[in-house]
Design a binder for these strands. Structure first.
Length: 576
DNA sequence: GCCGTTTTCGGCCCGACTGTTTTCAGTCG
């Protein structure tokens, strides 16, 4: 059972405890542990075997009780508490928690009073007006439940960041046109650049909130108005929930902090406030009745004795402790990027020529681009044979000569995304690998190999003196393909010992390495290449921001990323 | 269930909106 599975166990325990109306703080404890565990870089099983309960308890949010359960799961693959709780509730009941506007109290009531056990039964009961007769229920509740079920079915799951961001930006553009909108900003998980987004949060400063709300609920493409109040409204727009909040200018900082989250980060900050005798809410920082801050986000942090924490770090993953000790890293920025080490051209499955890719890179202000066309094994992507590699080399040389003669300070690097085959060998002989400026190794087949085999496969590639970078090291495709099984700690060790760079693939459905793995790489002293894997000239500039954002979420500074260096320095960090 | 330069026990973040209530419970973030 991997970390993610354990997190699910604790989430499900929390779900069931909610239905049973147990102590809300106990529920929160399970949730917090689940959130920490699912993003933990180290393998819990390994920690459990090595250090037992005392080692597990060092994980924030994990105490005696949960540590023992982790140990139990690691040893037996099963958790008795979890199993016992599951026997107390019908299987379909937990699914109901995922329906918007339906919470544990509602579920408990419909279950206890009229025996509802599933989404289908709830829908049937609402349609036949069995719910409105229940105490505290009415026609509206029934309607909302039906709407909620519809929404749940239509939009199960979260949206990709790259899908939500343009949508949010267009809403901002629309609302900005209003005179009554003084300031407008995106908040929520979008501002934290999470890889998937549950809903869009937008914050507006205005003295005429009613007019803002009016415009908001009349936006193009609106499908439903979930709530409309004086300062807060929620709509469904093209399948995404959008929340809008209007505040006074004096509250903007506090509100931005509050609505950016994460929830657990906010709880930590407010707890610090309470200890200092302060109350922190979306309107400001208060000592008693007196407002002592809140116009700027910095106020919030300063008043609880913390350095400013960038939104990407606000996940309660140690950023509060770091801010206390002034250890917040100076995160890498888009402008730091000086080149792209993984793009494709029409020599394999890319759309544009080498020259067009180079021109695009130059227009981004880059100093280099590595054209990393596929090796033969990826036949479907038009992988190059050895002959093509050599012919391509001529074209690259010609182009570089031209740049030199024209006084353009730019270089095209001959590279290839070379398959790491299932027998651990590379898809080109060493002589070809040696002739390339940059070799990017990648797994594209046999994703189902077991953990040990897959780990060895990549380790063998990293031990090859010509393999500079490992592309998309876990192989995941968000919403489509789970990451393959691999021992990431071992990969990091070998990467460090062999001087192999790990790629952070910027494609928004990959983001691979992810934020947690980036941080892990940094802990091991492994360098990262933020690459785009662009298959056409516009993609290169379009998706790099997602990679940089993920690197920031992984606490990376410019110095940790090889392609923030100039050409010579960057090449010096690669092998050979 | 977690956690502690205020505590090893007694706390645990805070407010808007809705619907059904006539003072509040439930949900959400």
């Amino acid at each position: 059972m991997i970390n993610l599975d354990m997190a699910r166990v604790f989430d499900e325990i929390a779900d069931i405890l909610e239905l049973k109306a147990e102590n809300p703080f106990k529920i929160r404890a399970y949730r917090r542990a689940a959130r920490t565990i699912e993003t933990l870089a180290q393998d819990l099983k390994v920690i459990a075997e090595r250090g037992g309960v005392s080692e597990l308890k060092k994980i924030p949010g994990v105490g005696e009780g949960i540590a023992k359960k982790i140990l139990e799961i690691a040893k037996t693959g099963d958790c008795k508490t979890h199993r016992a709780l599951k026997e107390e509730v019908p299987a379909g009941l937990l699914e109901l928690l995922a329906i918007p506007r339906v919470g544990p109290k509602t579920i408990a009531k419909v279950h206890d009073e009229i025996g509802i056990n599933s989404v289908e039964q709830l829908e049937e009961a609402a349609k036949s007006h069995k719910l409105e007769k229940l105490p505290g229920f009415g026609v509206k509740v029934e309607e909302n439940i039906l709407k909620g079920i519809e929404q749940y079915r239509r939009y199960k799951g979260r949206k990709l960041l790259s899908e939500a961001l343009p949508r949010a930006e267009s809403i901002v553009t629309e609302l900005k046109k209003l005179d009554v909108v003084e300031r407008i900003t995106i908040a929520g998980s979008l501002r934290r650049w999470r890889e998937t987004i549950g809903d869009i949060d937008i914050l507006v400063v205005s003295r005429r909130p009613k007019e803002v709300m009016d415009a908001f609920i009349h936006l193009d493409g609106i499908e439903d108005i979930v709530a409309k109040g004086d300062t807060k409204s929620s709509i469904v727009l093209k399948g995404i929930d959008v929340d809008l909040r209007v505040v006074d200018a004096v509250s903007l900082g506090a509100a931005a902090h509050y609505f950016t989250g994460s929830k657990h980060h906010n709880i930590r900050i407010r707890e610090l406030g309470v200890r200092k005798g302060l109350k922190i809410n979306e309107y400001g920082v208060f000592r008693g009745e007196e407002r002592i801050g809140g116009e700027n986000e910095e106020d919030v942090f300063k008043n609880v004795g913390l350095a400013y924490i960038p939104p990407e770090l606000r996940e309660d993953r140690g950023e509060v402790e770091a801010a206390k000790e002034n250890r917040i890293p100076k995160l890498v920025e888009p402008n730091d990027i000086k080149g792209d080490l993984h793009v494709h051209t029409n020599w394999s499955d890319g759309k544009n020529s080498i020259e067009e890719m180079a021109e695009a890179a130059i227009s981004l202000g880059y100093e280099y681009v590595a054209v990393a066309d596929h090796s033969p094994a990826v036949g479907i992507a038009g992988g190059m044979n050895e002959d093509k590699v050599k012919k391509r080399e001529k074209e690259i040389e010609g182009l570089n000569t031209r740049f030199k003669n024209e006084g353009v300070d730019f270089r095209v690097l001959a590279a290839s995304e070379v398959d790491i085959k299932s027998d651990c060998s590379m898809d080109f002989p060493d002589a070809i690998l040696k002739s390339l400026d940059v070799v990017v190794g990648a797994v594209h087949s046999k994703f189902s190999q077991d953990r040990a085999t897959m780990t060895q496969r990549i380790v063998t590639a990293m031990e090859n003196e010509h393999v500079d970078i490992i592309a998309h090291p876990t192989g995941r495709v968000l919403g489509k393909r789970e990451p393959y099984e691999v021992d990431m700690e071992r990969l990091m060790e070998v990467a460090r010992d062999t001087g192999t760079v790990m790629e952070l693939n910027s494609f928004p459905n990959r983001l691979d390495l992810n934020d947690v793995h980036c941080r892990m790489a940094n802990d091991y002293g492994v360098h990262i290449a933020i690459s785009t894997d662009a298959h056409d000239a516009t993609q290169m500039g379009a998706v790099i921001k997602y990679g940089v954002a993920t690197a920031r979420r992984g606490w990376l500074e410019a110095k940790d990323v090889v392609n923030t260096r100039g050409l010579e320095e960057m090449l010096g960090l690669l092998k050979g």
